[in-house]
Design a protein around this nucleic acid. Structure first.
Lengths: 132, 132
DNA sequence: CGGTTATAGATACCAAGTATCAATAAGGCA
DNA sequence: TGCCTTATTGATACTTGGTATCTATAACCG
């Protein structure tokens, strides 16, 4: 997980302003080690920093997603509630998410996975750019 | 893709009533060979059978999902619009979905994938029940 | 320290999907 | 065949996740 400071530096470097709300949301996000919903994040921010607006939370979440600091994950849930967010590690890897408690474990790139990607490419007309 | 009749038989067998709207939505769904959104389905049903209500379309979609006749797939899209539905083949297999045109190709179970699942189970505390 | 301009908060909006409820129509049975 | 029960329907209101818009504010640059 990248530290708060390094992300702030990166934001600054890419021309984004380092504002209070941004810092605050970023800190909240980076503290979390398991997937969270926008509603959970918003609730806890509203309690600890009630002046920050809902739109700002979503905007920051989107910015951080674009930067790769968080990842949006999809899951089966009733109603629309299928999104969760997760603070990313620095390197490409895969998540295993427990069906019952939601706990996340990483699974790092390995031979079996590479073999699978090659197999897919060999047997279909697809070039695999990414996977989930 | 299971035929309309066989699904109807199954519905009947499981105690569901064979109603006009159900038949109609089912036919619409089974005609589609690539992923469609609820909005697309609803639009086309509304044009061809304007008396069928929106709720019924969603209810039928949910019923068919529970029965495994359609599958809900998740994809990255702006706004909430991340769901699509896809009529399922009868056997377990995997979908490759093209980033640019949305076309779907199947990838059948094979050694590389099995190896990956075993590798995951060997190297983590997880038992893999399913994957996407 | 002052001027630009990105960003903030408020608010209204939108789309996907669900809950509710009275009216209807399947299917079992006489 | 026709009636009765009850699942299902359509209409409508609501909820939730997320976005657009607009004015006020506050970063950053000179």
């Amino acid at each position: 997980m990248p530290g708060v400071e390094s992300v702030l530096q990166r934001l600054n470097h890419e021309g984004y302003r380092l504002t209070g709300p941004r810092r605050y949301v970023l800190e909240e996000v980076l503290q979390r080690t398991s997937p969270f919903t926008s509603a959970e994040l918003w609730d806890s921010i509203q309690q600890s920093a009630p002046t920050i607006g809902r739109a700002t939370v979503f905007r920051t979440l989107e910015l951080l997603t674009r930067l790769g600091v968080v990842q949006r994950i999809h899951r089966d849930a009733e109603a629309g509630r299928c999104h969760a967010y997760l603070a990313c590690e620095d390197h490409h890897h895969h998540h295993l998410i427990c069906n019952s408690c939601g706990k996340v474990t990483d699974f790092h790139e390995d031979r079996a996975l590479e073999a699978l990607v090659h197999e897919v490419e060999r047997r279909t007309a697809f070039h695999v750019e990414g996977h989930r």
